[in-house]
């Protein structure tokens, strides 16, 4: 009798860690989602908290660790391509000097209580964070490919201009789950601002091509 009691006690104590270990991976995702969402202050404005929401593309990219199978990739690229919008006047190439400024600016859009951007601060494209562009800027990143001589190498045909605009507007239309943000889709840059960056990339007079 005594032995059986001890055995029973062992059984009731032992399974707890074992159970925790055997939970399926999907359960980890829902638990993680819960602790992640629960990690933010209650007094965050609703529009801040919206930045934690995921659209279908974000959800799929996260799920496949940015390397989705071909079927998923095609689905994402097709849907993203359909999202692209153009300036009202239809002109896809703007002022490279404006584009040059936007490419260098890394501020804007920071929220939170510690170090938010002051209201009205310019939101830049921060292109140099990831790409090499004009020769004179040595502080460039390498997360994306070098875009030095972008227009010199590719020309500035209508087709190249449209491709460049589309890529900046929605990078995922070409490569699902790429590291590059979807600048137009999120209204991070306006269509007009995108045309300036297009000019910075393709205009023969721009330092991207001239130097």
């Amino acid at each position: 009798m005594r032995h059986r009691l001890i055995a029973l006690a062992l059984i009731t104590l032992a399974p707890l860690p074992a159970l925790a270990q055997s939970k399926p991976a999907g359960d980890i995702a829902s638990q993680a989602e819960q602790i992640f969402r629960g990690s933010f202050r209650d007094d965050n404005p609703a529009y801040w908290m919206k930045r934690l929401d995921q659209d279908e593309t974000m959800r799929l990219c996260s799920q496949f660790k940015d390397n989705p199978p071909a079927r998923v990739r095609h689905k994402i690229e097709k849907a993203e391509m359909a999202s692209i919008r153009y300036p009202v006047d239809g002109k896809l190439i703007g002022d490279w000097k404006e584009g040059e400024k936007l490419a260098a600016v890394g501020t804007g859009g920071h929220i939170g209580f510690i170090q938010p951007d002051p209201p009205g601060r310019v939101r830049g494209g921060n292109c140099y964070a990831c790409h090499q562009l004009a020769k004179k800027e040595v502080a460039y990143g390498t997360i994306g490919p070098s875009l030095q001589h972008f227009g010199k190498l590719r020309g500035n045909t209508e087709q190249i201009i449209k491709y460049t605009y589309d890529k900046i507007y929605n990078s995922n239309a070409f490569t699902a789950c790429t590291n590059m943000p979807r600048f137009g889709l999120h209204n991070w840059l306006t269509p007009e601002q995108i045309t300036h960056i297009v000019a910075f990339l393709v205009d023969p007079e721009s330092p991207v091509n001239k130097d």
Partner: peptide
Amino acid sequence: MGEYIFYRRSGPQD
């Protein structure tokens, strides 16, 4: 859970 959060995309810059 840390690994899940590491790959979790969201926000205006994806």
